[in-house]
Amino acid sequence: MGSCCSSISMAALLILVHFATLLNSSLAVRELLGVQTNTEFIRTSCGTTTDPGLCMTTFSGYASKIQASPKLLASTALSVTLSTTRSNSTVIVKLSKSQGLKPKEIASIRDCLEELKDSTWVSAALTDEDTCMDSFSGKDINGNLKTTVRRQIVKVAHLTSIALAFVNRYAAHP
């Protein structure tokens, strides 16, 4: 009887291990599908924006947080845009302290910094970025300075536009 019971116990243990393995792999598949679904939500949402590439690059890392929630997507977009605006403002402040800047270049940088302060007011921010770049027109502005500032401003403008699209979409379909 001891050999029979141990054989049954061993068989039961093997069956239990087999079911546990199936359960674990099923959970792994569901988790993988959830990540793919979340990423697909981001991809679909980004596809309707003015800069789908930047959008996907920026927000795909937040897919598990956002899941398929338009509200979380809009909130995350605003948060990321604000954070990017702050860090880009820091870059521009450092540029303003560069040696050898012309008075017009310093004035243009100050204009951009003023406009970036308004970037938290999302709908006004798109106009503000244009105003900032207008101050850099003309031949008397260093090309490298103009390019560096433009790169910072364009990214903020694009993220602002994306955030505004997500907020508007959420407002229309809460």
Rank of each mutant, 00 (worst) to 15 (best):
T58G: 05
R169Q: 10
D140E: 15
Q67P: 00
Q152S: 09
S26I: 06
V149D: 01
Q152P: 00
I15M: 13
T44N: 04
F136S: 01
L32E: 11
S79R: 12
D51K: 03
T57N: 14
D51R: 06
M10C: 10
V122F: 14
S83K: 15
T21E: 05
H173Q: 09
G34E: 08
A157G: 13
S64N: 14
G61R: 06
C112V: 00
K65A: 15
L145D: 08
E115H: 09
M1Y: 15
S6E: 11
D111M: 03
F19E: 07
I92E: 07
K139Y: 02
L101N: 02
L27K: 14
A28R: 10
R150P: 04
L14E: 00
A12N: 13
K65T: 15
A63E: 03
T39K: 09
S83F: 11
L95G: 05
Y170R: 08
L113S: 04
D118N: 10
T21R: 04
M133W: 00
L72V: 02
Y62S: 10
V17C: 13
L27N: 06
K65N: 04
L16M: 10
F136L: 09
G2L: 08
V35S: 06
I66G: 07
H158A: 10
A107I: 01
V149M: 02
E105R: 00
A157F: 06
E31L: 12
I141E: 01
R43P: 00
T160H: 06
T57Y: 06
S64F: 05
A163I: 01
T48F: 09
H18W: 15
E114T: 15
K94V: 07
S25C: 07
L16V: 05
M56H: 12
L72N: 04
G34S: 15
G143P: 02
E115F: 06
E129F: 03
A107P: 09
S26A: 14
K102F: 05
E40L: 03
R169D: 15
L54H: 07
D128Q: 09
A107K: 14
G53A: 15
A77L: 05
I42W: 00
A163Y: 03
G100N: 02
A172G: 08
T81Q: 12
C132D: 01
S7R: 15
S123P: 10
L33Y: 08
S25R: 11
S89G: 14
S69V: 00
P174A: 15
S119H: 11
T120H: 08
A20E: 07
L113P: 07
A171T: 09
R43A: 05
S108D: 06
T58A: 11
P174K: 11
D111P: 04
K71T: 05
S7Q: 11
S89F: 02
T127W: 08
R30W: 11
V154T: 10
G143F: 01
T120I: 13
S69W: 02
I66S: 05
C132T: 01
N168F: 06
T21Q: 08
I92Y: 02
L13M: 14
K139R: 12
P174F: 10
A20G: 04
L27A: 12
A124W: 09
P103Y: 01
T21V: 10
Y62E: 12
T90V: 11
A12L: 15
C132W: 00
C4W: 12
S69F: 04
I109N: 02
S135F: 02
S123T: 12
T49L: 13
N168E: 09
N24S: 14
R30N: 15
